[in-house]
Simulated assay, not measured.
Amino acid sequence: MSAGFADIDWARPWLASIEARGRRWQTAALAGHGDYLASLNEDAAAAGHVTGRGKRLAFIAQDELPAGASYEGHIAQTGRVPTRHNLHDFFNAAMWFAYPRIKAALNARQAGQIDALGIGPTRGGVRDALTLFDENAVFFACADASLGDALRGFCWRTLFIDERAAWGTRCEARVFGHALLEKLVAPYKACTGHAWIVDVPARYFALDDVARRAVLDEIVSERIRGEPLESRAFAPLPVLGVPGWWDANASPDFYDDASVFRPGRRARGC
């Protein structure tokens, strides 16, 4: 069963950072779950990344997760990430390589919450926010505070039309959430991420892709470890509105759809 792997379009700009490794994994996944896990573990052994409590990263089949064990707790304690043969877990694994510090920091906080509060019928506010981050976050790297303010304020015309030239020079978006990446295999206009605004220096935009990811990995992982985290810290970002990510958004009329680019209560100052 291919589980949709054949449908990945590597020409999509939001996949550029993971394309090289992703193509190899895609080929392995199409051959079967065993080949796929072997490919993941070959890369994990070479990279030497660790999970939330310093255990070497590895990948196992979902059915190897012991009965009664929590997913995040198992990863923190053993380093082994239970992985199904589907797109959701494919993109989760990709983020362990694209942003290893961030994934480890998220895992450490999740495991800490589980240690403190146990596993109940609900996750609680902190775990909900951590899960939302892991599943649906988009990094909005910004060297101009006014652009971050425009995003927070639902000022879509400012962000996407008036300041269109700022994209790639003073701001950019990078999809992190693996559930969001799964949705974007079949993109639709209303597809919306939870933007996490990251202040970066102007020199960030002179760096190559690898260096930019390293900067974000360091800054964001430190924030996750040290800051209170709650769901309202995010700003909604309709991802197909990002300039260069969808042909139709070259027309300003694209942003007139209020069902997607909602004004919000904070848009009065735009």
Rank of each mutant, 00 (worst) to 15 (best):
H85W: 12
V175S: 14
W96K: 07
G168Y: 11
R101I: 11
A98F: 05
A98N: 08
V175H: 04
L65D: 05
D134I: 04
Q113S: 15
W196H: 10
A129N: 06
Q77P: 00
F176M: 11
L180Q: 05
L117G: 11
W156A: 01
V126A: 08
G73P: 06
A69I: 07
V126I: 12
R174A: 13
E64H: 12
D144I: 08
L180R: 02
P82G: 05
G153R: 00
A166C: 06
L106A: 07
D128A: 05
A116S: 12
G68A: 03
F90Y: 15
R80V: 14
Y188R: 15
W196R: 01
F160W: 08
V81A: 09
A129M: 09
L57P: 03
F140W: 12
Q62T: 13
Y188P: 08
I60V: 11
V81D: 09
I75W: 04
R127Q: 15
G68Q: 03
T192A: 02
P82L: 02
Q77H: 03
A190V: 09
D199G: 06
F176L: 13
P66C: 04
V185D: 01
L151N: 05
C142I: 05
N107F: 08
T169W: 07
I161E: 14
F176H: 08
A69Q: 06
W156L: 01
R174I: 14
I102D: 11
T192W: 06
V175P: 10
R56Q: 12
I60P: 01
E72C: 03
R164S: 12
E182S: 04
F90R: 02
Y99H: 11
A141P: 09
G125M: 03
C171Q: 01
G68S: 04
N86G: 04
L130H: 06
R164C: 12
F59K: 00
A61V: 07
Q77T: 14
H85I: 10
L117I: 05
T78K: 00
E135P: 15
E64I: 04
R101T: 15
L180P: 14
G118I: 05
A58M: 10
L65V: 07
E172P: 14
R101H: 13
A179S: 14
A98I: 05
K55H: 14
I197M: 03
N107Q: 10
P100C: 10
A116Q: 06
E72S: 06
P100R: 04
L87W: 02
H178D: 07
G168N: 07
L159K: 00
A104G: 10
H194R: 15
I102M: 11
C191E: 06
L130D: 09
L180I: 12
F133I: 05
T122V: 12
L147C: 10
A76S: 09
Q113E: 13
I60C: 05
I197D: 01
H85E: 02
G112K: 00
T158D: 14
H74F: 13
G148L: 01
K55C: 08
R84Q: 12
R152S: 13
V198G: 06
